[in-house]
Write a protein that binds this DNA or RNA. Structure first.
Length: 258
DNA sequence: ATGGTAGGTGGCCTA
């Protein structure tokens, strides 16, 4: 089973690229982030014509996440399912696909270390961990895939000195990310490429960052141990960052023996 | 020379 995560930075703007990419790569499950669409504007017809069923948790303008699956789609849940007041942003949607519980995850950016949004980000990560504790067990086949907006270690950014005082690399964010993983999730990409620097999923549009290889690894596929040991391979499809009108993120694609 | 890119919306905000 091939599972992919891709922050498309507007599905409307990216639709031709997304369609061509799905036709070429044929993932069984793709988790999209930043669709920037209301549910009614989601291109369901196109995805369905390609064999996918879709769970979209949308919000015009910003955010918006989807799980698209051609191996079944059951038990859809939008947002945190913890009985607390709903998240004002559409950043999380769950579905069961071919026996795997899958979440498309779009963690808040954080903006700046002194911003309210940074506290929202830390609380959001803690709340996600809480949902796992309440509703799930680490022995399940479960995947969190998406844009976590955290570079877990210094080797996951092109120059740690360039990020001094910025979000995505701060210790509280990294601790919150590690706490999430310590519930029982593996960073499947890092498992496959231990200790290898220079492998990124996001490159800022500004300053020719992609061509200078100045990126960050902030999009992740996290899997429970039962799934992580079934990984055949995982890549970042950098080709999707090339050419006309790319997203600033490249897809992460993992193959599982399922 | 304090810029630059791209997405949304609507005359700025977000990433």
């Amino acid at each position: 089973m091939r599972i992919a995560a891709w922050n498309v930075n507007s599905l409307r703007a990216r639709l031709p690229r997304v369609e061509a990419w799905l036709a070429a790569v044929c993932p069984e499950v793709v988790c999209l982030q930043e669709t920037k669409l209301n549910d009614g504007d989601f291109p369901s017809g196109l995805l369905e014509s390609m064999g996918y069923r879709v769970a979209h948790h949308g919000q015009g303008r910003w955010n918006g996440v989807a799980v698209c699956s051609r191996v079944g789609l059951e038990d859809v849940t939008a947002g945190f399912d913890d009985g607390q007041p709903p998240d004002p942003d559409a950043r999380l949607v769950w579905a069961t696909c071919g026996g795997v519980r899958v979440a498309s995850v779009y963690v808040p950016n954080g903006r700046a270390l002194d911003a309210d949004h940074y506290q929202y980000k830390l609380a959001w990560l803690r709340r996600l961990r809480g949902c796992l504790e309440e509703r799930h067990d680490p022995s399940e086949k479960l995947v969190l895939a998406g844009d976590f907006n955290v570079a877990p270690s210094d080797m996951d950014v092109w120059d740690i000195d360039a990020f001094a005082g910025l979000t995505h690399v701060s210790e509280p964010e990294r601790i919150a990310w590690r706490d999430l993983c310590e519930w029982g999730l593996e960073d499947v990409f890092r498992l496959a490429y231990p200790g290898i620097a220079g492998l990124y999923t996001f490159w800022d549009y500004q300053g020719g960052r992609f061509h200078k290889r100045q990126g960050m690894r902030i999009d992740h596929i996290l899997a429970t141990a039962t799934l992580a040991r079934e990984v055949e391979g995982i890549i970042v499809d950098r080709n999707a960052r090339k050419g006309p009108k790319p997203s600033d993120h490249a897809p992460v694609v993992a193959d599982f023996r399922l």
